[in-house]
Computed example of a mutant assay.
Amino acid sequence: MEDLTKLDPRFVTVTRIRAALATLPVLIAAIVLESADLLPLGAIVVPVVLLATFIILRIPLRRWAACGYDMGSDRLRVVRGLLFRSDTVVPFGRVQHIDLDESPLERAFGLSTLTVHTAGTHNASVKLPGLASDDAAAMREAIREHIKRETL
C-alpha cells in the first residue's frame, strides 16, 4: 500500500487468538460427529482442522497486511478490508468525539481500538483496531488538540 502506517504487528497475534476461539466450537462439533462412526476415520476432522489452520494462520496475516492508516494534519485516513476494501477519510472538523476501546485480549497485548465518531449518519464512526495503546492515546490527543484549535 502507498505510504500508509501499518497496524501494530501484535494485532496479528490477537486476531489469531480470536480466530482460534471462533473455530474451536466447529472443531469440537467435528470431533463429536467423527466419534459417531458414520464416516471413515478423519473424513470430518481432517478437513475441519485444515480449514481452521488456514483461518487461524493465514487470514489474520492477510487482514493485517490489508489495513493501514495515515494521520495528516487535518484528517485521518483508514484503509482496510480483504474482500470488501474500505478507504475512509475523516476530516477532523467533522469529529464529534473519540473513543479508545480495549478488550481484555487487546489489553493483554498492549493494543487499543481508536473509534472516531463523526457528524452525519453514513459511516458515522470509523474504527481503527490494532494500534499500540500509547500510539492510540497520542492520536486521540492530537485529534482533540486539532478540534480544540478549530473551535477557538
Rank of each mutant, 00 (worst) to 15 (best):
P104C: 07
D101K: 14
L105K: 06
F92L: 03
A119D: 04
S86V: 11
H97G: 04
D87W: 05
D101V: 13
G81E: 04
H117S: 02
D99L: 03
V116G: 13
G93E: 13
D87Q: 08
E102P: 00
L111E: 00
R107Y: 01
L111G: 00
L100F: 06
A119M: 07
T113R: 12
D87T: 02
T88I: 15
E102I: 03
A108Y: 01
A108D: 08
D99Q: 14
F109M: 00
S103F: 04
R94Y: 09
H117N: 06
R107Q: 09
T115S: 13
F109R: 01
G93C: 06
R94E: 02
V116Y: 14
G81M: 07
T118M: 11
Q96F: 05
P91Y: 09
R107L: 01
P91D: 06
D87R: 10
R85Q: 10
T88E: 15
S103T: 14
F92T: 01
P104S: 02
T113Y: 12
T113W: 09
E106M: 00
A119G: 04
E102M: 07
R94T: 11
E106P: 00
H97A: 04
A108V: 04
T113P: 08
L83S: 15
H117D: 04
A108Q: 09
D99T: 08
L100T: 05
E106T: 00
A119N: 03
T113D: 10
V95A: 08
Q96C: 10
I98G: 14
F84R: 13
L105Y: 03
S112G: 08
A108S: 11
G93W: 06
V116Q: 12
G93V: 05
V116K: 13
D87H: 09
L100V: 07
